[in-house]
Amino acid sequence: MIPREWIPTRTTRTHLAFLALPVALFATFYVYPIISSVYLSMHSWDGFSPDMRWVGLQNYKTLLAQPRFFNAVLNNIAWVAFMLIVPTGIGLMLAAILDRGIRGESVYRIIFFLPFTIPAVAVAAIWRWMYEPTNGLITTVLDLAGLGWAAQNWLGDPAVVNASLMGAVAWWTTGFAFLVFFAGLRNIPTECIEAARIEGATSWQIFWKVSFPLLWPSTIIVLGMSAIDAMRLFDIVWAMTQGGPAYSSEVLATQMYDLAFGRFEMGRASAVSVYLLLIAAVVIMPYILYMSSRVQDSEAE
């Protein structure tokens, strides 16, 4: 006989019913692929043969012995730093400037946000032409401005290519940070700003001491999304350089794709994906835990 307290109540059953679908979707499309990737990473498999060969941790060891792998890891870390600072910083700056009530605000809002609506592959195509090293727009403008000496082999020089890609991504993604910060600024109670102004605060002091701290929820969203975007970066790099020249712009996701489909090494590609998961966890989890505690603190207050 089942104890009475073990039988779910009608309310509990309703909760379980509502939870069933999202849990099933999460298990199918998130948990299962992770488990499958870990399983594949311990095999040698070309991706289509009926048979796989068990190799244990060999794929992980092989990757750790390759400079190519470490170069991709470093590039991912550089992308995280860039995404947290540059598009976020520019987006905040643009939002703060536009929040001052500039004429034609709605036009600027569209202009700033528009690039973010363009698909990655189209952005890549646009910037491949912009970065053409002889007749591209950037080189031509620099030449006309008498700054021809600053023109570079934008996508062909291993020392420059990552900065060039970051320039394109800054143009593309700043609109997102701008929009979130701008909405955040517009939601700050005007009494706070007025009170600071009456107290004699300068514009900079109002922004830095009043507006910016109150933008915290927007900052959480922008920084979190930026860090995640940086770790899973693939499309724009693949479409613009395919990780080249000679692996110099490669990130872990493009390396994974190249190994899986360019070289028929599905097991090793899966090992890269597991490393990517672990590195993303190390880089992003502390941030998420910190933010969670801040949210809890805010709720407590």
Binding site: R128, Y131, E132, P133, T134, N153, W154, G156, D157, P245
Partner: peptide
């Protein structure tokens, strides 16, 4: 050519 590696 100069800058060949940056061209398609």
């Amino acid at each position: 050519a100069k800058n060949w590696s940056g061209k398609t």
